[in-house]
Design a protein around this nucleic acid. Structure first.
Lengths: 148, 148
DNA sequence: AGGCAAATGCAAACGATTTGCAACTGGATC
DNA sequence: GATCCAGTTGCAAATCGTTTGCATTTGCCT
């Protein structure tokens, strides 16, 4: 069993557990999500799913994404000024760097930042429900390189 | 000269410097922004401005907010699942905690987190253009208190 | 006071997402 | 394996926050 198969199964099981039917359309979308190594938006996922189920509607994609998110097996990221992007949550928690020039998303994780966040919230009498840390970045100018 | 007056002047000057006319509507909105100690959304700012200029349109509010943001004298915050909120940038950089139950916004700043962010980006060959750190939080359960 | 570019209010367009609805279908039950 | 029906589909229309086109008004420089 490949990594992709394992992921697909995890997503499928999550829906089944929630009492949600696995239709052709949903199976296709789950496969697409399992295969994705990037952070695609809904329209892009729809485009990819259409390869397997021509005519699948965008509404169905959105509805299924919402269901998967509710089960906690995918995450919805709302980066600044762009449509929401999605990723499966098989991997451990991480934050994101977004290249403002290319839109490329790089993942990173840092325990010290996580701990500091919890401390700050605790000091003010709060527990963190979730957080969002996004670094909007630009490739460092290399000496002798024109960045036009 | 009060703190509010100083803030109003700063906003006004920023617009003038950008070659933007100070109309009655804009003067009202600038006063509202200068007076705001919270993080109001556009509709709320519009409501407050209407007290001074009845009939001021929401479009004008949005247009002026966009101009002020372009001049860097106010900031637009897009918190998860809510309309954008605005604040004047007179105070130093800070991040935000959003109470998920009440919508209340608390500001905080932490140098160590700022430094860690810069280190992380640098290690991957990036410079930070700007960042977004939002802690979505809930009041700590006090012992003996039922949280519904 | 006169003139013109910039700003206004309105209504209509916008883009991402959600929803109402009638037709269809998965999959448990017999 | 036929039956059944709640869950699901595709479509079109609605939604929400925000932006924009346009005809009219207005700051403000001369």
């Amino acid at each position: 069993m490949t990594k992709i198969d394992r992921r697909t199964e995890r997503l499928t099981d999550a829906l089944r557990r929630a009492g949600v039917r696995i239709t052709r359309q949903r199976a296709a979308l789950l496969a697409v999500l399992a295969r994705a190594e990037d952070h695609p938006e809904a329209v892009e996922l729809h485009r990819r799913a259409e390869a397997q189920v021509p005519g699948i509607s965008l509404s169905t994609v959105y509805r299924t994404l919402t269901a998967l998110e509710a089960q906690g097996v995918i995450q919805r990221h709302q980066f600044a000024g762009t449509p929401a992007r999605f990723e499966h949550t098989e991997t451990a928690h991480h934050d994101h760097m977004i290249d403002v020039d290319t839109g490329e998303v790089v993942e990173f994780a840092n325990d010290r930042i996580e701990r500091l966040q919890a401390e700050i919230a605790a000091a003010l009498g709060y527990d963190i429900v979730h957080h969002r840390l996004e670094l909007y970045v630009r490739k460092k100018a290399r000496p002798g390189t024109d960045q036009g």
